[in-house]
Design a protein around this nucleic acid. Structure first.
Lengths: 135, 135
DNA sequence: GTGCTTGCAAATCGTTTGCAATAGC
DNA sequence: GCTATTGCAAACGATTTGCAAGCAC
């Protein structure tokens, strides 16, 4: 799915900036922060404003075109992959890894609500990643 | 379990401030923010510093005596209940609710690691709570 | 030309840091 | 007395806000 289609699908009016930001999320599965998106895109879009990146990423997550991750206590990260999966945060290097969602875990989604309306599900794991363990 | 015992159990040297903060968490299951703990305790401890509340809550979560919740993007919240359960965040009123951890969900914990060392598990749900839905 | 989007600068506010004062063995 | 803890003020930094300029239909 390309960026333009993804925006249309979520009722977001496509602008150059929005397409570029959505495209960045779709092609970089690194769970980037606002700053990473901004720094990377501003190389080819010198007039891009960080405010626009903030606004757009928030809009994308509100409209369900991206996930806003709060697993890193120091900054918001974003994920263009909205399919169900879990996230692992390394407390040492700060990277976020994707982990698969087991079938039985997937089945739980939406089962526990107690009358609340659940719109977002996040499964977060923290610890030390494989790479940092061997250092 | 009282606050003093909880601190000793996690190798935290008990001071007046630490006992009061730990006790607050154990007696208020509202997932308070730093500010809520500070504001409430400072009524009876006028010299209490917010820095101490920050330091202590961080220490408690590092030592496993409390959970640091990052479910609310705008502030850190803390939970003195370290037993396995899930959290629901209401996007409208900002409150955090406890939800039970189903047995099959509990069984997943520690199963998906892919070589990483997992130390923390958080299951977060977001949406609109029962009370806000009826408003 | 009307309404939405962008971008700059300034403000905001939760959190951390530096460091001197204090308390506890 | 030595070490750890506390508390104040200042710094920090991520995010938001206000508002004017720009763009699109």
């Amino acid at each position: 799915m390309n960026a333009y289609t993804q925006l249309k699908k979520h009722n977001i009016k496509p602008s150059i900036q929005r397409i570029e930001i959505m495209n960045y999320l779709l092609t970089h599965r690194t769970h980037p922060s606002v700053d990473e998106v901004y720094t990377s895109l501003s190389k080819n879009m010198p007039t891009l404003s960080k405010t626009t990146v903030y606004n757009t990423l928030r809009l994308l997550s509100e409209q369900g075109a991206a996930l806003m991750l709060t697993i890193d206590e120091t900054r918001l990260c974003f994920d263009g992959d909205t399919s169900p999966h879990t996230h692992f945060f390394c407390k040492k290097c700060g990277r976020i890894f994707d982990l698969p969602l087991t079938e039985s875990l997937a089945k739980q989604i939406g089962k526990i609500d107690e009358g609340h309306m659940i719109t977002d599900v996040h499964y977060y794991y923290r610890g030390i990643c494989k790479d940092c363990l061997t250092d």
